[in-house]
Amino acid sequence: MSEKEIKNLEAIFEAKIARDEKIEPKDWMPEKYRKTHIRQMSQHAHSEIVGMLPEGNWITRAPSLRRKVALLAKVQDEAGHGLYLYSATETLGISREELYEQLHSGKAKYSSIFNYPTITWADIGAIGWLVDGAAIINQVPLCSTSFGPYARAMVRVCKEESFHQRQGYEIMLTLANGTPEQKEMAQDALNRWWWPSLMMFGPTDDMSTHTEQSMKWKLKRKTNDELRQQFIDQTVPQANILGLSIPDSDLKWNEERGHYDFGPINWDEFWQVVKGHGPCNKERLQTRVDAWEEGEWVRDAAMAYAEKKAERKVKQAG
């Protein structure tokens, strides 16, 4: 194809997105669109999968059967989210094997929030409330993103997320209204998860590189800072209901802006964790790799059994 033809196709393509038409896997698309989507969607899938680990840590120690079935169902949902997203990514012409390989080799990223440890039961409450809460804010706009399979996967994901956040908040509510030790445990979890949750929206707008392109392709509808502000504004009143205090001495309502002002975020910490130096980066990745490698014989056995069954069928028919 000549450069002029490609330019022409690109113009038609961009106009289609501007008209709110969806792009489907077999449609022509610019290479950059394909690559950007493979990167973002697979990162999203990896985050769902690695995201099971911090919470999985508490399934066997959940304080009651009610909490245990809820946590189990939540973690199972996250596995489902990962699977919706992996198969949506595969429609762009990359195999599941390659996607796993990128995660296991450390080439692909996943959300940094999952590199923090879950050291008390209250962390499970804080994750549901804050981490799923932030994820919802990031994900809702993606339900109308331009790539059809991604948008459809996100609609399903978003439907399931609200239970995640509510079960987390309920855990916090119970602890906050419990013994002084339990309340302290809830406060400690909020203290540790608050700032990393704010970092989930990514670098500030002046530091963020691909915002404009992402806006055009509807991978983004609001900027990182706008989404972060939205999260803070809706979470502060929820913390007040819990009777817990947000660990930010600069946090205060700004009448003029109609938003909460908040203190500076420690971006050094953010970049350290992104670069692999968070408290649990190594452990998380190792757990994934081990699960994949130790499961290999099961996958092989299932494949061998399926082939044997298929052969037997052919023989019987013949």
Binding site: Q76, G80, L83, S87, A88, R96, A302, A306, K309
Partner: peptide
């Protein structure tokens, strides 16, 4: 509804149940 990987049709049905019809 989407797609998934499985060794054979029977497993694909079982996985589809878990992945796409939990509710």
């Amino acid at each position: 509804f989407g797609s998934l990987h499985a060794a054979d049709a029977e497993m694909a049905l079982e996985n589809a149940r878990d992945v796409y019809t939990r509710r």
